[in-house]
Simulated assay, not measured.
Amino acid sequence: MTKETIIEKTNDFLIDDFEIEEQVLEPSANLKDAIGLDSLDFVDLVVAVESNFGVKLVGEDFTNVVTLQDFYNLIQSKLD
Score class of each variant (00 low, 15 high):
Met1Thr: 10
Met1Ser: 14
Met1His: 11
Lys3Pro: 06
Lys3Glu: 15
Glu4Ala: 15
Glu4Lys: 14
Ile7Gln: 10
Ile7Asp: 00
Lys9Gln: 13
Lys9Ala: 11
Lys9Asp: 10
Thr10Gly: 08
Thr10Ile: 11
Thr10Gln: 07
Asn11Ile: 06
Asn11Ala: 09
Asn11Thr: 08
Asn11Glu: 10
Phe13Tyr: 12
Leu14Met: 14
Leu14Gln: 11
Ile15Asn: 11
Ile15Trp: 08
Asp17Lys: 15
Phe18His: 11
Phe18Trp: 12
Glu19Phe: 14
Ile20Phe: 09
Ile20Leu: 12
Glu21Ala: 15
Val24Leu: 14
Leu25Gly: 07
Leu25Met: 09
Leu25Phe: 12
Leu25Thr: 08
Glu26Asp: 14
Glu26Ala: 14
Glu26Thr: 14
Ala29Arg: 05
Asn30Tyr: 02
Asp33Tyr: 04
Ala34Leu: 01
Ile35Arg: 04
Gly36Arg: 01
Asp38Ser: 04
Asp38Tyr: 04
Asp38Thr: 04
Ser39Leu: 06
Ser39Gln: 06
Ser39Lys: 03
Ser39Pro: 04
Ser39Ala: 11
Leu40Phe: 15
Asp41Thr: 09
Phe42Ser: 04
Phe42Leu: 12
Val43Gly: 03
Val43Asn: 02
Val43Cys: 09
Asp44Phe: 13
Asp44Met: 14
Asp44Val: 12
Asp44Thr: 13
Leu45Glu: 03
Val46Ile: 15
Val46Leu: 03
Val47Ser: 11
Val47Glu: 10
Ala48Gly: 06
Val49Thr: 11
Val49Glu: 02
Glu50Arg: 14
Glu50Gly: 06
Glu50Ile: 01
Ser51Ile: 10
Ser51Tyr: 07
Asn52Lys: 10
Asn52Ala: 09
Phe53Met: 11
Phe53Thr: 15
Gly54Phe: 04
Gly54Asp: 05
Gly54Trp: 02
Gly54Ala: 05
Val55Tyr: 01
Lys56Met: 05
Lys56Leu: 06
Leu57Val: 09
Leu57Gln: 00
Leu57Glu: 00
Leu57Tyr: 00
Leu57Cys: 07
Val58Gly: 08
Gly59Phe: 05
Glu60Leu: 06
Glu60Thr: 15
Phe62Ala: 03
Phe62Thr: 07
Phe62Asn: 01
Thr63His: 08
Asn64Asp: 12
Asn64Tyr: 11
Val65Thr: 04
Val65His: 01
Val65Leu: 00
Val66Gln: 10
Thr67Asn: 02
Thr67Ile: 06
Leu68Pro: 01
Gln69Ile: 07
Asp70Thr: 08
Phe71Arg: 02
Phe71Gly: 07
Asn73Cys: 01
Leu74Glu: 05
Leu74Lys: 00
Ile75Arg: 02
Gln76Trp: 04
Gln76Pro: 00
Gln76Glu: 12
Gln76Met: 10
Ser77Arg: 03
Ser77Ala: 09
Lys78Asp: 09
Lys78Glu: 09
Lys78Leu: 06
Leu79Trp: 03
Leu79Ser: 07
Asp80Glu: 15
